[in-house]
Design a protein around this nucleic acid. Structure first.
Ligand SMILES: NC(=O)c1ccc[n+]([C@@H]2O[C@H](COP(=O)([O-])OP(=O)(O)OC[C@H]3O[C@@H](n4cnc5c(N)ncnc54)[C@H](O)[C@@H]3O)[C@@H](O)[C@H]2O)c1
Ligand SMILES: NC(=O)c1ccc[n+]([C@@H]2O[C@H](COP(=O)([O-])OP(=O)(O)OC[C@H]3O[C@@H](n4cnc5c(N)ncnc54)[C@H](O)[C@@H]3O)[C@@H](O)[C@H]2O)c1
Lengths: 212, 212
DNA sequence: TTCACGCTGTGATTCGTTTCACAAAGACTA
DNA sequence: TAGTCTTTGTGAAACGAATCACAGCGTGAA
């Protein structure tokens, strides 16, 4: 019913609105929010419709009220606890970033199969041996998982997470991961994204410089 | 003419095909490639059309030949050199990953405004003070940039990169960045992706466990 | 009080992508 | 040789999302 892409844009609008709130701005028009979010005014209005909030044709949207409405829409349920699997280069960067993130989506546990990396606390997040995955996910009621393990381990890790009750996955491994139909999975394939950028960069500057 | 999404999927097919090649598989059918790539057989056939390669109705596609055709299609131009700006947590993870990546898209320079992080070589990549950005990008002929700086610095960094000749950008900062129309930009907003996953996870398991 | 203005909310439309469905073709069988 | 089987390549149809376009409305000006 509600589209993937609308949810993504609402998340962007929310961040922009919070920035505006910090800057003391009280009202905003759809075209202004659109410009700051990289989309069109019509799209903003359509997306805002989904949250049920209604603006005023004269003042536009109330910044605080709209931010609140989007927050309520996006984070309606109780806080969604997150588990990270794979405390490697990428996993550690994600952990370092997590305190700056949305407190409604807290990172509460991390797992690794390397004994040297576990049984400590990094940026407020407990690190466990991967053997305890099911136990911790179940006891903490974790519903969201982040896969930052090598490709070869991704499918099996996903299977374990889903069995333990995870229903949303963010996958950084550059491989397709099968999950049960009730689980939502989002793939963030950085290599693929870079290849895409390189491809279009090649199209846009195809001729060598006249370099003589 | 060629769609964004087709390029993305071709990149995935290519990786799957290289894995098959390593495993000694000589031929593959569209439905098989589709299953391993997370899409449909019809989509595979459509996408393959774009590269100009033609399979056999009996044997399917020749793994090596198709991988080659996709590679040629995606990486037709000379190697696309890449510059990274922002040697923080995320930047360092990307540098650590780069040797494992496509050699047609080499990471050749990194920049930071923190003097403590520059004037050394990390994973084979030279780190420069950000003041030398224009000079290095121009002299090396770099056409692709990765933004791993804080949001506040993203727009200005993008502007400098584009002025220096970059025509493709990969942006990790959670902010909208304006670029000239001839520049291709791809945003990888990890926070947004996680909020999306959390949202759909909340929808799929909305009720608290009957936990008594 | 009337009018003009600019913006929101939304039905209708357009656009791009995915999926369907089938003709064409090689290989194997008898 | 004729027939069957499986898969490709691709027009055509279906689908979903973005965009258009405008009615409706509150405001401020005259
Ligand atoms: N680092 C990057 O910038 C980057 C970029 C693109 C994609 N990726 C992908 O992200 C994933 C992680 O990348 P990375 O650079 O952090 O790799 P890494 O090798 O630094 O870290 C992987 C971690 O996973 C752990 N691990 C391995 N098998 C495991 C298992 N079965 N269970 C639990 N933990 C296990 C390892 O001990 C290690 O700590 C990889 O799939 C990689 O392809 C990373
Ligand atoms: N770390 C993550 O997992 C993560 C996740 C999501 C998004 N991001 C985004 O990626 C970006 C980088 O994240 P990070 O965790 O690496 O942050 P970080 O603070 O660890 O690193 C930022 C780096 O950029 C450098 N820098 C700051 N201003 C600069 C400038 N004007 N020119 C050049 N260099 C400059 C800093 O010296 C620092 O080394 C941020 O925008 C962040 O929001 C990071």
């Amino acid at each position: 019913m509600i589209s993937d892409k609308t949810v993504a844009r609402l998340s962007v609008y929310r961040r922009v609105l919070l920035d505006m709130q910090d800057a003391g701005q009280a009202h905003v028009f759809s075209h202004e929010l659109a410009a700051r979010s990289g989309c069109t005014a019509a799209q903003v209005r359509r997306d805002v419709m989904a949250t049920g909030y209604t603006g005023s044709p004269v003042r536009g949207y109330d910044v605080t009220a709209l931010a609140g409405s989007i927050s309520e829409f996006l984070f309606h349920s109780e806080a969604q606890k997150v588990a990270l699997v794979g405390i490697g280069n990428l996993g550690r960067a994600l952990m370092a970033f997590s305190p700056r993130r949305n407190p409604r989506i807290p990172l509460v546990a991390a797992f690794d199969n390397d004994p040297a990396k576990v049984n400590r606390v990094i940026h407020g997040c407990r690190c466990y041996p991967v053997q305890q995955l099911e136990e911790v996910v179940e006891s903490e009621g974790i519903r969201v998982g982040i896969l930052a393990v090598p490709s070869a381990a991704a499918q099996d890790t996903a299977r374990r997470l889903c069995r333990a009750g995870v229903v949303g996955l963010l996958n950084f491994a550059p491989t397709h991961v099968w999950v049960p139909p009730h689980v939502y999975i989002e793939n963030l394939d950085l290599s693929m994204a870079l290849e895409k950028v390189a491809f279009f960069a090649g199209l846009r500057a195809p001729q060598k410089e006249i370099s003589l």
